[in-house]
Simulated scan of single mutants.
Amino acid sequence: MKKKTGLGRGLGALIRDTAPDNESSDIEQIKSIDIELIYPREDQPRKQFDDETIAELAKSISDHGILQPLLLREVGDKFEIIAGERRYRAAKIAGLKEVPALIKDVKDNIVKEISIIENIQREDLNPIEEALAYEELLSEYNLTQEKLAAKVGKSRSYIANSLRLLGLDDYIKEYLIKGEITSSQGRTLLSIKNPLERKEYLNKLLENKINIREIERRAKKKHTGKVDIFIKDMEERFTEVLATKVKLIPGKKGGKIEISYFSNEDLDRIYEFFKEENYG
């Protein structure tokens, strides 16, 4: 069984931190909520919902009911889903009129964070959704990879490796989303710098004509030069500070710094970081 370190505590802490000091025990009680009054968040981190697994969950709900309540917050006369959209979708298919739910008074600026962490905790995200979720948390909450790792109960290297997947070609990301290649295979393909070669190796992987070790050996042959320990260390330090991939390209005199970004929001976050350092 896979050990999940810290995730449950992180989600619980987030919810507790947003609750008012005089919160009564009534709020903690599970309530039955009219399913027609519930709606999902527009910025839900999970983008892909597998129809087959939703149907299986609907069958289970028909037979046994919903075993884990939804987490909702009251917005006007309706309820917004913080966590549990899969259960909500399956319950609708199963024909339920009401669903069990915990109602929490959660502030706007923390709802998305709770939703993302809950999805990570339940392992409901595909590798690209997970990487985008980490990128969004880093950007919106101005976290370092180390702080994010502590918050979600992962190692910093796990976060960094997940974010690396966003550097893949879009067509390779689709294979990751569909589960036809693994995250490890995706990262290994990144080591092949030539796009045409990368596509060729992807096809060989899909046809089981090559394995990861062979691709790694091929990539190493392309990079036979000695690794500059100072440059490697500085790359890691830049990556930690900027919370994104940084590559140093040494030249005869000086060199270049290549900073990766994954969205306009991420680019704006990096700009604000440098702005604050110079003028803050």
Score class of each variant (00 low, 15 high):
residue 157 S to L: 13
residue 6 G to V: 11
residue 22 N to S: 14
residue 192 I to C: 04
residue 179 G to L: 03
residue 130 E to Q: 03
residue 263 S to F: 14
residue 49 F to G: 01
residue 96 L to T: 10
residue 9 R to T: 05
residue 127 P to T: 01
residue 178 K to E: 11
residue 96 L to I: 08
residue 16 R to E: 13
residue 49 F to K: 10
residue 46 R to D: 00
residue 164 R to K: 10
residue 48 Q to W: 07
residue 275 K to E: 06
residue 270 I to T: 11
residue 268 D to Q: 05
residue 240 E to R: 12
residue 65 G to R: 08
residue 5 T to W: 04
residue 50 D to E: 10
residue 246 V to F: 15
residue 224 T to Y: 04
residue 277 E to G: 14
residue 121 Q to I: 14
residue 63 D to L: 07
residue 84 G to E: 12
residue 92 K to G: 04
residue 24 S to H: 14
residue 42 E to P: 15
residue 95 G to F: 11
residue 106 V to D: 02
residue 146 E to G: 14
residue 80 E to T: 08
residue 102 L to K: 05
residue 234 M to Y: 07
residue 272 E to R: 14
residue 114 I to H: 13
residue 163 L to E: 02
residue 129 E to P: 07
residue 146 E to R: 04
residue 73 R to S: 02
residue 64 H to S: 15
residue 278 N to Y: 08
residue 45 P to I: 03
residue 31 K to W: 03
residue 155 S to K: 04
residue 148 L to W: 07
residue 269 R to I: 06
residue 103 I to D: 05
residue 23 E to A: 09
residue 87 R to M: 03
residue 157 S to Y: 07
residue 175 Y to C: 14
residue 93 I to Y: 15
residue 81 I to R: 00
residue 233 D to R: 15
residue 210 I to H: 07
residue 170 D to F: 02
residue 139 S to L: 12
residue 39 Y to V: 08
residue 152 V to I: 10
residue 13 A to I: 10
residue 66 I to K: 04
residue 18 T to V: 12
residue 262 F to W: 08
residue 132 L to C: 11
residue 116 I to D: 12
residue 192 I to S: 00
residue 141 Y to I: 00
residue 264 N to L: 06
residue 230 F to Y: 01
residue 243 A to P: 15
residue 260 S to Q: 15
residue 127 P to M: 08
residue 260 S to F: 10
residue 135 E to W: 01
residue 198 R to K: 13
residue 84 G to P: 02
residue 65 G to M: 08
residue 58 A to I: 04
residue 262 F to T: 02
residue 102 L to E: 11
residue 272 E to C: 03
residue 73 R to H: 02
residue 122 R to M: 09
residue 94 A to M: 00
residue 72 L to M: 09
residue 30 I to C: 12
residue 222 K to G: 13
residue 21 D to E: 14
residue 124 D to T: 13
residue 24 S to A: 15
residue 6 G to L: 02
residue 275 K to N: 01
residue 271 Y to T: 03
residue 205 L to N: 01
residue 75 V to K: 10
residue 188 T to A: 11
residue 266 D to Q: 06
residue 275 K to W: 10
residue 258 E to Q: 01
residue 72 L to V: 14
residue 43 D to K: 13
residue 69 P to F: 05
residue 111 V to Q: 12
residue 118 E to N: 10
residue 213 R to N: 14
residue 26 D to P: 12
residue 267 L to I: 08
residue 254 G to I: 00
residue 278 N to M: 12
residue 46 R to S: 05
residue 126 N to T: 04
residue 82 I to Q: 11
residue 13 A to P: 08
residue 168 L to Y: 08
residue 251 G to R: 10
residue 24 S to P: 12
residue 253 K to H: 12
residue 44 Q to R: 04
residue 165 L to T: 01
residue 220 K to I: 05
residue 12 G to F: 09
residue 148 L to C: 01
residue 88 Y to F: 10
residue 213 R to C: 12
residue 187 R to W: 14
